[in-house]
């Protein structure tokens, strides 16, 4: 069992830092190289959302990534204290984005690459996305998000 908490400002440079740190922690248990790549994408999506959507136009918002790893797998919680999400169900729909320049694929990737994704949010207070990835011996997750 190991736990790591990272706390950083809402700056684009920190997205790469967070996904590499979480992947390095995940590498302490039995994930394959491919699993680690998928975990990196999911973490990148959750942290990018906190940077872009939680604190629009701000570089001074805090983001916290708390992770735990054990023999069974990895849990990651990405939390912000930003604008929050009014309608979580709609936000999670594939191709939904509040920004016409974006594809609305962030939650699609989180859900496809992790075994469980939970979103808690309070408008005006912030958002927490909790994701879990289990070590599986057959490897493949079901890919029904397409």
């Amino acid at each position: 069992m190991n736990r790591v908490v990272l706390r950083f400002l809402s700056i684009a440079d920190n997205v790469g830092l967070a996904r590499i740190a979480v992947a390095a922690l995940a590498a302490q248990t039995n994930f394959s190289v491919n699993d680690l790549e998928e975990i990196k994408v999911a973490v990148s999506e959750a942290v990018s959302n906190a940077v872009v959507h939680a604190y629009p136009g701000r570089r001074d918002g805090w983001i916290e990534v708390a992770c735990a790893v054990n023999q069974e797998g990895l849990t990651v919680a990405v939390e912000d204290w930003g604008v929050g999400i009014e309608d979580i169900e709609r936000a999670r729909e594939p191709a939904y984005s509040r920004d016409p320049e974006r594809m609305g694929l962030g939650f699609v990737f989180m859900e496809s690459f992790m075994h469980d994704v939970q979103v808690e949010s309070t408008p005006g207070q912030g958002t927490r996305v909790r994701m879990q990835r289990l070590v599986t011996w057959s490897g493949e997750l079901s890919r029904d998000a397409q």
């Binding site: 790549e37 990196k40 994408v41 990148s44 999506e45 990018s48 320049e101 974006r102 594809m103 694929l105 962030g106 990737f109």
Partner: peptide, 12 residues
Amino acid sequence: FVDSSGLGVILG
């Protein structure tokens, strides 16, 4: 490495 932000640029 590519995520949805990179894909947005490609698809755009």
